[in-house]
Design a protein around this nucleic acid. Structure first.
Lengths: 116, 116
DNA sequence: TTGACATATTCCCATATCGGCATATATTAG
DNA sequence: CTAATATATGCCGATATGGGAATATGTCAA
């Protein structure tokens, strides 16, 4: 079995750096394909292809305006990713806690707890 | 250029469903490869391969205990993903805001306000 | 040592990728 | 209508994938 299609879900779609950049770029306002091309310095066919993937997984929305296509990020579709990552929130929360505790008890370094 | 390697960064690594499952499984306690195999009903070589990818991007840590390898999730490595998704938080925050306002002004439950 | 157990690696294969380039489609202007 | 602009699609090639089966490596027990 090959790797899951990039358009199979949001988790796969955001694996690509350029697609994440596009999502960021489209987060504020809707943008034309041409604006993305010049704004992010990508080639037009590449942008169109990435937009197709993003559209297929619902990460962007489009509407037509004359001969322009106006794309915008659909933040709702990012929420599942957010929720998934939040599942691990306690890790860095604990980390901050530990750092704070260590600072407060400002004593001794634990001897090298080996990490592989 | 082919797709970026699955072990090139966390964004690519979590694209795979089984890897996300493994990360969830290893979030509470450290686990043996065998435990992952039986716990998630995967084949051992498959698990070992996924663990390798996860290890390469720092999403899991290992230590050896006799002939067992004990893996655990390194939540810290998920934080960048969390931060990235949080960039879009206002999308669903606004959504909730709108829902709340509607509820307050109407003083009743809105019918079918779909939740994902 | 030998054998049993735990995990990692290798090989094969069908598939999807992304970038470039060329081209097709769609829409408006004149 | 035709030309020009905006976007989408098709084709190519190099590459990495993930599953499965077989096998290699590593560690302990007797």
């Amino acid at each position: 079995m090959p790797r899951a299609a990039t358009a199979s879900d949001a988790f796969n779609a955001i694996g690509e750096t350029h697609r994440r950049e596009i999502l960021g770029y489209l987060a504020r306002d809707e943008r034309t394909v041409g604006e993305i091309v010049t704004g992010l310095r990508l080639l037009q066919p590449s942008v169109s292809k990435h937009l197709r993937v993003l559209r297929e997984v619902g990460l962007v929305r489009v509407r037509r305006n004359g001969r322009h296509m106006l794309y915008r990020t659909n933040g709702e579709a990012i929420r599942p990713l957010y929720e998934w990552t939040r599942t691990f929130e306690r890790f860095w929360a604990n980390q901050l806690q530990r750092v704070k505790e260590r600072a407060e008890s400002k004593g001794q370094e634990g001897p090298g707890t080996a990490e592989i």
